[in-house]
Simulated assay, not measured.
Amino acid sequence: MSQFNSISDLLHESGAQFRIFDMGRRISKISSGQFEKLEQGMIPYPLPYLHHAWLALMLWNNKDKQQNVVWFLKFPLDEQGFLVQAVRDDFLNRLMQNISQMLQKENLDQNNDALKDNPFSFTPDQEKMAMFHAQSATIIQQPASQFYTGTKAYFSGDLGWENWSTLGYQGIADLAARLDEDNNNAYLLNAIPHLPAEPLRALCTCLEHVEPDHRIAKALLSRLQEQLQTDPDETGNTNLVAALLRGLSNIHNEELKKATIHQTLTSSYAAKAEVMAAIATRCNLSLQYPDLLSLYLEKLAVSEAGQTGFSRILADLMFIPMMRILILQAFRNPQRSEELSAAIGLMFGTSFEHSTKN
């Protein structure tokens, strides 16, 4: 079998249908053209997370969609956010060793060990894996999981809102991935005001991967506003606030998102590390507004995340080129607090902290 010069070449020559997804902050599609530019070093990776590109490559046989395979790949990025060519080449060389027979076989399912012992493969967490399975099933027009019917019955309200313990997370993911089917959007609108914390949290961690409409967004916002009035030190409350922020993070209404984040940052929940991490990892696009970013930085500097959390969260955000520029500008704000100045100094050194005052 001939050697391929890029992953794109391999995908195109495989004869299979394929889709490429980013798996970092949320599941989102990457076009084949965009991926080719990433591989050629023409553009930086658009969605870096923890200094890596997190990818899912989904391949299937168009004549028999039961024949499919997914590769989850994690590649380090250079200091400018570009894919490291040598790493990509190393991956391809290892892959060729494992799948030398791949293109001669018709059944893609026989090649699920293609990434065996490959250091660039990873396994998504269970929540993200469930949502990926749900979305991929809709792409290749496969039925939802066995949990889907029971989940629809619960969210319709027919079973009683407290009877959620037998729900499968996969069923909730299936429902979130099929909002335009089976009256599911209406079921959610009916259910959200009544859901107990646990199924509401699970629903929100699925909705962050899709684009809920404005009605669902308003229903989630109402629950969040209620939750912000509760005691953040009471068990489970912080987890639910963070989950609701995640559920709202991919809605279209940017003004609503900004207002939601501002309301959260001016509540007692701004002190909680999990809430601050949810905003940074899922709502980072909203932090491109200077006033909101300045408020976020001030709250992060005095939050329970501590100096370690402050440094880790900002190191990840600053890997995104636009966010790096905006954060450095915010650091130079002469009106910043002493607490923020101290956190900056501990992260970068006192010489950097002093230079931002000049």
Score class of each variant (00 low, 15 high):
82 F>C: 02
82 F>W: 10
84 V>Y: 00
140 I>A: 14
175 L>A: 12
112 N>C: 02
317 L>W: 00
205 T>V: 11
103 L>K: 13
85 Q>S: 00
173 A>D: 07
226 E>H: 13
323 M>A: 03
308 T>W: 00
212 P>E: 04
267 S>V: 05
237 N>C: 05
180 D>W: 06
129 M>E: 13
225 Q>E: 14
30 I>A: 13
38 L>Q: 09
267 S>C: 05
2 S>P: 03
297 L>E: 09
283 C>P: 06
21 F>Q: 04
111 N>Y: 10
104 Q>K: 15
114 A>L: 15
228 L>C: 12
258 K>G: 02
5 N>H: 12
176 A>R: 13
298 E>C: 08
125 D>M: 02
23 M>F: 05
303 S>P: 12
45 Y>V: 05
232 P>M: 06
14 S>Y: 00
228 L>W: 14
257 K>Y: 00
164 W>D: 01
254 E>W: 01
237 N>T: 04
300 L>E: 09
152 K>M: 02
90 D>H: 15
152 K>F: 02
97 Q>G: 11
286 S>C: 00
102 M>P: 00
112 N>R: 10
116 K>N: 08
208 E>Q: 15
72 F>T: 11
323 M>K: 03
312 R>P: 01
61 N>Q: 08
77 L>F: 09
191 A>C: 15
58 M>A: 14
62 N>P: 02
173 A>Q: 12
274 E>H: 15
67 Q>P: 01
57 L>C: 08
300 L>P: 08
288 Q>S: 01
312 R>E: 11
121 S>L: 03
257 K>H: 04
223 R>V: 10
340 L>Q: 06
309 G>S: 03
285 L>Y: 09
37 K>R: 15
262 H>G: 05
351 S>T: 14
302 V>R: 13
52 H>T: 07
296 Y>Q: 07
97 Q>C: 07
9 D>Y: 10
197 A>W: 05
203 L>F: 12
65 K>M: 14
145 S>Q: 04
260 T>K: 00
169 Y>F: 12
187 Y>M: 13
92 L>R: 07
47 L>K: 11
3 Q>E: 10
332 R>Y: 14
185 N>G: 06
178 R>H: 07
91 F>I: 07
328 L>I: 03
135 Q>P: 01
280 A>R: 11
218 K>Q: 12
353 E>I: 14
232 P>S: 06
24 G>I: 09
354 H>G: 09
260 T>M: 01
267 S>K: 06
12 H>F: 13
133 H>Y: 15
299 K>L: 11
41 G>D: 08
354 H>M: 15
154 Y>C: 03
180 D>K: 12
211 E>V: 08
286 S>L: 00
167 L>S: 01
285 L>S: 10
79 E>G: 01
339 E>A: 13
354 H>A: 10
